[in-house]
Simulated assay, not measured.
Amino acid sequence: MGGNQALQANGFTNTVSTNNHITVRGSDWYFAVCAVMAFTTLIFMGLSFRKSRSQRLFHYITAAITLVASIAYFCMGSNLGWTAIQVEFERSNPKEAGNMRQIFYVRYIDWFITTPLLLTDLLLTCGLPTPTILYVILMNEIMIVTGLVGALVKSSYKWGFYTFGCVAFLFVAYSVVFEGRAYARILGPDILKTYTMCGVWTIFLWCLYPIAWGLSEGGNVIPSDSEAIFYGILDLLAKPGFGALLIWGHRNIEVERLGLHIRDPETTPSPFREKKSGNVASNGVINGHNSTGAGQDSSTV
Rank of each mutant, 00 (worst) to 15 (best):
G259Y: 05
F112C: 03
F164Y: 14
I85E: 01
P189V: 08
L42P: 08
L215R: 00
T163C: 12
D235L: 14
P116K: 10
M139T: 14
P131Y: 13
S17N: 03
E266M: 13
Y108D: 11
R257C: 01
G3C: 06
N19K: 07
A184C: 02
C166D: 06
Y135D: 07
P223V: 00
Y174M: 07
A38D: 08
R263C: 05
N283D: 14
P129M: 10
S27R: 11
N14L: 08
E141R: 13
T15Q: 12
F31L: 13
T13F: 10
L119P: 03
L260N: 07
A173V: 08
S291Q: 12
V149N: 02
L67E: 00
C166V: 11
V16L: 11
L123G: 05
F89D: 02
D28R: 02
M100C: 07
T18A: 09
L138V: 13
S70A: 10
S226W: 09
Q102I: 01
W159I: 05
A69H: 06
D190P: 04
V36Y: 10
G81C: 07
L134W: 15
N79K: 07
L42A: 15
T268V: 09
H250Y: 11
H289C: 05
P189T: 07
Y73M: 09
Y157C: 02
V177G: 02
F161S: 02
E179V: 15
G2N: 13
V36S: 12
G218W: 00
F74I: 02
A244L: 15
I109Q: 03
F171I: 15
W206G: 00
A151Q: 06
H21W: 02
V153S: 00
A35R: 04
F74S: 06
S224R: 12
N93A: 10
V24E: 15
L192P: 01
R91M: 04
W82I: 04
Q102H: 04
W206S: 04
F171A: 15
C75N: 01
T130K: 15
L170F: 13
I247A: 08
P265H: 12
